[in-house]
């Protein structure tokens, strides 16, 4: 049976401006998928730009895959990551520095 694991990486966290999630070590996993759920936002047009990142050491990072975005409250965006090596995180920013979003971010992993 394959191994799987779901991690709540951000829980009801309010994001403003630039951010990066905590490094998550996942070298055992063959596939990963991010779920970013915007629970609340400063306005219906508040846009959160996101990009998955990978790292060989948990310290130095580069982007992987396509940029993602989600706008307004009660919205979810999800995307897969494959062949990522060892560490995963998401970096992002609110498009306007005046905006904020409240998020629930899951990282789901499978061997």
């Amino acid at each position: 049976m394959r191994q799987s694991h779901a991690a709540v990486v951000e829980r009801y966290t309010v994001l403003r401006g630039d951010f990066a999630t905590e490094p998550h070590e996942a070298g055992w996993a063959g596939e990963a998928r991010w779920f970013v759920h915007v629970l609340d936002a400063s306005s219906p047009t508040a846009r959160l730009n996101l990009h998955g990142q990978i790292s060989p050491d948990g310290l130095n990072w580069c982007d992987i895959g396509e940029a993602q975005a989600v706008t307004g409250a009660d919205s979810v965006v999800s995307w897969p990551v494959r062949e990522f090596g060892q560490w995963l995180r998401v970096r992002g920013s609110t498009e306007s520095p005046d905006d904020w979003v409240k998020v629930l971010i899951y990282l789901t992993l499978k061997s």
């Binding site: 070590e25 310290l59 130095n60």
Partner: peptide, 27 residues
């Protein structure tokens, strides 16, 4: 509603399966 979780008990971080990999030696 996770806003009802106490502030000091809402972010204890998910445990990770680690191969103890480091920048200088790798795994």
């Amino acid at each position: 509603n996770l806003d009802t979780v106490d502030d000091h008990m809402r972010d204890f971080r998910p445990p990770q399966l680690s191969s103890c990999t480091f920048f200088d030696v790798g795994t």
